[in-house]
């Protein structure tokens, strides 16, 4: 099992906010946002909750469990 996310969709639904702007809002670097979107980095609970709060959604609306591809 791994953690998937709808971060990219959330960004587009929020006036296509850029990765840079989102990163600034939640206090991380743009590379961190890119890594999360590509499922190459699993954010901490704190960062995941900050992202959910920023988009005004529940945690589980953005993050979900998914089966490993391999």
């Amino acid at each position: 099992m791994k953690l998937g996310n709808n971060l990219r969709r959330c960004r587009f639904e929020m006036d296509e906010i850029t990765q840079e702007a989102l990163a600034k809002e939640v206090g991380v670097t743009r590379q961190t946002i890119i890594s999360i979107e590509k499922n190459r980095y699993v954010p901490s609970a704190l960062l995941a909750l900050k992202l959910a709060m920023f988009f005004g959604r529940k945690f589980e609306d953005i993050f979900y469990l998914t089966e490993d591809e391999d």
């Binding site: 206090g27 991380v28 670097t29 890594s35 980095y41 960062l47």
Partner: peptide, 13 residues
């Protein structure tokens, strides 16, 4: 910055 980390969590990792 005191308790507030200068690096973000991915940079730390």
């Amino acid at each position: 910055r005191g308790n507030q980390s200068a690096f973000d969590e991915k940079q730390g990792l």
